[in-house]
């Protein structure tokens, strides 16, 4: 067990193992997103109330899932970095933040666009929408805080702390639709429980969600490797590795 943890500490080990994993996640993401897109846009039946505008769900829900999952992953990485001083965890947290912010933006944007035909408004200061907007600001705060220090280590620790504190917002987002009376509909989709949606609508959504998760994993592996190159430029193994690539 300790041997394994010590291996995880080594950016070199991470760099080689992620190279093997990465193509599988990219391939899975491409396949799932392609199948999910075609199925969701062209083959899933139209909703009896919302008509075809409901198809926005296939980008809205996966993006919203990812926005929250990435924040939790970032907070866990921050904790791992603070407790065990594992640098790779901090590098992963660094690259997760912009993707999380992008996914939060996608969830908010697609939700706003969806709101126009269904609610008649693109924005409401509703509990779910407001807590998602706070999530976007938390992401931007984490990114800004990381860059606000002269020493990288101080920035990393500040960003980790903000991520760990900000994770409080995640259960608020999740239960906002139950705790407050909101315009936003309650969860129509769960991975574990039975769903209210018919299979022909639900299956493409599951595929899209899995596709988005594979995309997140693939991109995080890729960009963490880049972050290793950036921070370990002076290490002998990085320089030898570059020689081999040429």
């Amino acid at each position: 067990m300790w041997a394994f943890i010590n291996k995880l500490r080594s950016p070199k080990w991470f760099y080689s193992i992620s190279a093997k994993l990465q193509p599988w996640f990219w391939a899975a993401a491409a396949l799932l997103l392609l199948v999910g897109t075609v199925w969701g846009l062209a083959f899933a039946p139209a909703d009896y109330q919302q008509g075809n505008s409901f198809r926005i769900i296939y980008v809205h829900v996966p993006a919203a899932f990812l926005a929250q999952s990435i924040f939790v992953s970032m907070a866990i990485s921050g904790l791992v970095f603070m407790v065990w001083k594992i640098k790779v965890a901090d590098m992963a947290a660094t690259v997760m933040a912009p993707l999380g912010a992008a996914m939060t933006f996608v969830a908010l944007f697609s939700g706003a666009v969806w709101g126009v035909p269904t609610w008649g408004t693109w924005w409401m200061w509703d509990a779910r929408l407001t807590s998602m907007l706070i999530l976007l600001f938390l992401y931007l705060g984490v990114i800004a805080l990381r860059g606000a220090f002269n020493s990288r280590d101080s920035g990393s620790r500040a960003a980790s702390v903000l991520a760990m504190v900000g994770v409080i917002n995640i259960p608020i987002i999740k239960y906002s639709v139950d705790w407050w009376y909101t315009l936003h509909q309650p969860a129509s989709f769960t991975i574990t429980g039975r769903s209210a949606m018919p299979m022909e609508m639900w299956a493409p959504l599951l595929i899209m969600v899995l596709g988005f998760y594979c995309f997140f994993i693939a991109l995080t592996l890729m960009r963490t490797r880049s972050e290793i190159l950036r921070r370990e430029t002076n290490k002998r193994w990085v320089q030898e590795l570059v020689e081999e690539v040429r």
Partner: peptide, 21 residues
């Protein structure tokens, strides 16, 4: 398919921005 039952702008707009990003 392109008209999306009159909601084309919303559906394609949401998907387009997501794909582009």
């Amino acid at each position: 398919f392109f008209a999306m039952g009159g909601h084309g702008l919303y559906v394609w707009g949401a998907w387009g921005i997501t794909a582009l990003l």
